[in-house]
Amino acid sequence: MVTAATLLYATGVYRIRCRVGHERVVTRSQTLAFTVAAILFVVTLSQPVDDIADASFSAHP
């Protein structure tokens, strides 16, 4: 799901930049923020991080 969202976003940004030019609608910092958020989302949901969270929060149901 994250991959699909990232591909759709990248395609949209590419198409917009081709039509109206760079930095007019979606800035590089916005694109970078989306990319970092997607990477962090995947890392957070990965198995090793999930195992660490289970060990660290063992008191929670």
Rank of each mutant, 00 (worst) to 15 (best):
A59K: 06
V36A: 14
R28G: 15
S56T: 09
M1H: 09
L8R: 05
R17E: 12
A4C: 02
A55C: 03
V25A: 05
T31N: 04
D50E: 12
V2Q: 06
V49L: 15
T11M: 10
V42A: 13
L8G: 02
I39H: 02
S56I: 04
F41C: 07
A38I: 02
R15Q: 11
I16Q: 00
R28F: 02
A37G: 09
V13Y: 00
R24A: 03
G21H: 12
L40T: 10
V49G: 01
A5S: 03
V42L: 09
V13G: 01
I16Y: 00
M1A: 07
D54H: 11
D50N: 11
T3F: 02
A5C: 04
F34V: 06
F34T: 02
V36E: 09
A33I: 00
A10S: 13
V25W: 08
G21T: 07
R28I: 07
S56Q: 12
G21S: 08
P61S: 14
T6N: 08
L45G: 07
Q47W: 13
V36D: 04
I39V: 15
F41K: 03
E23M: 08
V49T: 12
T6F: 01
L7V: 08
R15H: 03
H60V: 13
L32A: 14
I16N: 02
Y14S: 14
V43K: 05
T6R: 08
D50I: 09
L7C: 03
L45T: 04
H60M: 10
R28N: 14
P48S: 12
P48I: 12
D51F: 11
Q30T: 05
S46Y: 06
V43E: 08
R19Q: 10
A38K: 00
V36R: 11
T44Y: 08
T35V: 11
S58D: 13
V42W: 02
I39N: 10
V36T: 12
T35I: 10
M1Q: 05
G21F: 11
Q30H: 02
Q47G: 03
V2L: 12
H22F: 07
S46N: 11
D51L: 15
T27W: 00
F57S: 09
G12L: 07
T3E: 12
